[in-house]
Amino acid sequence: MARRALFYVGLLLLLLAVLFPLYWVVVTSFKTTRDAFAIPPVWLFSPTLENYRTVFANRGFLSAFANSFIISILSSALAVAIGSIAAYGLAQQPAALRRSKEKFILSLRIAPALLFVIPMYYLATRIGALNQHWLLIAAYAFVNVPFAISLLITFFDDIPKELRDAARVDGAREFSVFWHVYLPAARGGIVATLILCVLFTWNEFFVALVLTGRNTQTLPVSITSFLTFQGIQWGALTAAATLIMLPMIVLGVLVQGQIVRGMTLGSVKG
């Protein structure tokens, strides 16, 4: 009995360590500036929406929200569309060929972003594309395609090979097999891949920091504008932070089973 109690105490401490920082940010976003900086900290307070008002009054933040939304949805949809076609083709190949292509795709993900962001920035400044949405959509699609391929292959692998054989005997052309049989059968995996791409793009900072201009700033870049030289507006900052991460936490919980799989890219199977 004592052991059991000890276990639950341990569990509680673990959850506290994991969740407290998040809790503290969300709670602070509802505090007045005075409450936010009170020492000792204020645990009970009358909540205020003042910080959210500040954030929503900030035009930059609102347009960043729209930018993040458009860029992550479009680049992810593009990546999943391209990725699913390629993944279908690769999933049908003999192991040796497939392996070499998968290795190549994986190797694309090891290089630091710096390596392709600098030349992209250089070219973009020359053709004046720095302030264009399509530049970011293309950049993120380029980053997401290899990821989408590696992940989707694992979902297509779960579909029995006989389905393709059956469809071919039933008179389907290769594209019909893909469209009528494989795509519907892998629907769950495709949605999960799409969500993971959106999640990644939404959260991505480095590429956005370099390649976004004033009109294309995404949320993670825009939030740094609250870190001003005059000091940090913690109230507005925590409110903005809450707004940024909330949709992703909802999405993430929706595809929770796939996240670990997605982040290891099927490398678990070897």
């Binding site: 006989e162 054989d165 059956a166 071919r168 005997v169 052309r173 059968a185």
Partner: peptide, 21 residues
């Protein structure tokens, strides 16, 4: 000829029914 032009039908051990239909 590819399978679809041979006009044969096949029944599989694993049934191979299309799960979403």
């Amino acid at each position: 000829l590819p399978a679809r032009e041979r006009d044969v039908a096949m029944v599989f051990q694993s049934y191979a029914l299309y799960p979403t239909m």
